[in-house]
Design a protein around this nucleic acid. Structure first.
Lengths: 165, 165
DNA sequence: TATTGTTATACTCTATAACTATA
DNA sequence: TATAGTTATAGAGTATAACAATA
């Protein structure tokens, strides 16, 4: 730095700039997570799609897009990549010939298990400065804020939130 | 796992997928903040630059970039936009003819005060589902994680973190 | 030789519109 | 008329390399 010494506030004044903290944490997570899901196509987003696909009954691309808060055009490309990598397959919905059900393959399930482990490691690294209790508190609070944010953003949200971990 | 029904966790299992929550919260914040800083150029990033510029002694563009964890090439464009809007000015550093000091103008200071108020409103909206104590806890925890993430990412970080709010 | 700042380039993520085939 | 999916396009955000001026 050029010269300074008199910063306006002490170090903990950052607590009040939530947006700044969110941006930094988000970038930090993305960097770590990108390494963790290296084996998957489309990076962290492909990982989350795979998570959603593996959740329960096969869903349409549109249902997946709504679940993840993404646009359907984005979902097309993500499914393209995952299908090309042999991790999911598209099959026609017998009850609606417009729709396609997306199902995970054995390879996809294997890759997902592996990715989950490495993502857990990456998350732990990100929260390394926090105690176990603080980590739990942060996860819970962020989860609540995220659910509310998604509910208020995309009104067509599904019932439950992602359980992927 | 192909067509199962046995989900691993109930709805609150999302607590464990921190990355997902971070992404949703980050997007939600950006949407709200973009409206809040509408009067500033370059959106939330211009706002944060203006925050950093107004902090203390004038700093060089490179110092600002390091402080915000951005690349110096990004900083060039951000300062361009802010200068064109009349909110900051570049002036030569008398002690280093390579460097330029970035200082805030009266217009910039006025715009920043106004933006801060609206950003506070946006943040409050994002955390509307949390109690006052929970909000404080989340801000504190996110701040700690952010400081550590920035410290481990850009080793050349400054001493203090942003106090902008 | 290293650093400050600029420019140019490319790649990713995101947003939008237009089109098809079904309903 | 509305919906599921695809394609194409344009805009941000980010990362990198190359360059000029100065240290």
């Amino acid at each position: 730095m050029t010269a300074s010494a008199d910063l306006i506030a002490p170090a903990d004044g950052l607590d009040r700039d939530l947006g700044w903290a969110i941006g930094v944490v988000s970038r930090g997570y993305r960097q770590r997570a990108m390494g963790a899901v290296e084996g998957l196509p489309a990076g962290p987003r492909g990982y989350h799609v795979l998570c959603a696909v593996s959740e329960g009954v096969p869903r349409s691309q549109l249902a997946l897009a709504r679940r993840l808060g993404l646009d359907k055009t984005v979902m097309t490309h993500l499914i393209d990549d995952l299908e090309q990598a042999g991790m999911v397959t598209r099959r026609p919905d017998p009850r609606d010939r417009r729709a396609r059900q997306v199902v995970i393959t054995a390879d996809g399930a294997r890759a997902l298990v592996q990715a989950r482990e490495q993502v857990a490691v990456a998350e732990a690294g990100l929260l390394a400065g926090l105690s176990a209790e603080e980590s739990r508190a942060l996860r819970a609070l962020m989860g609540r804020v995220a659910r509310q944010a998604q509910a208020s953003a995309g009104q067509a949200g599904d019932s439950a939130a992602s359980d992927c971990a």
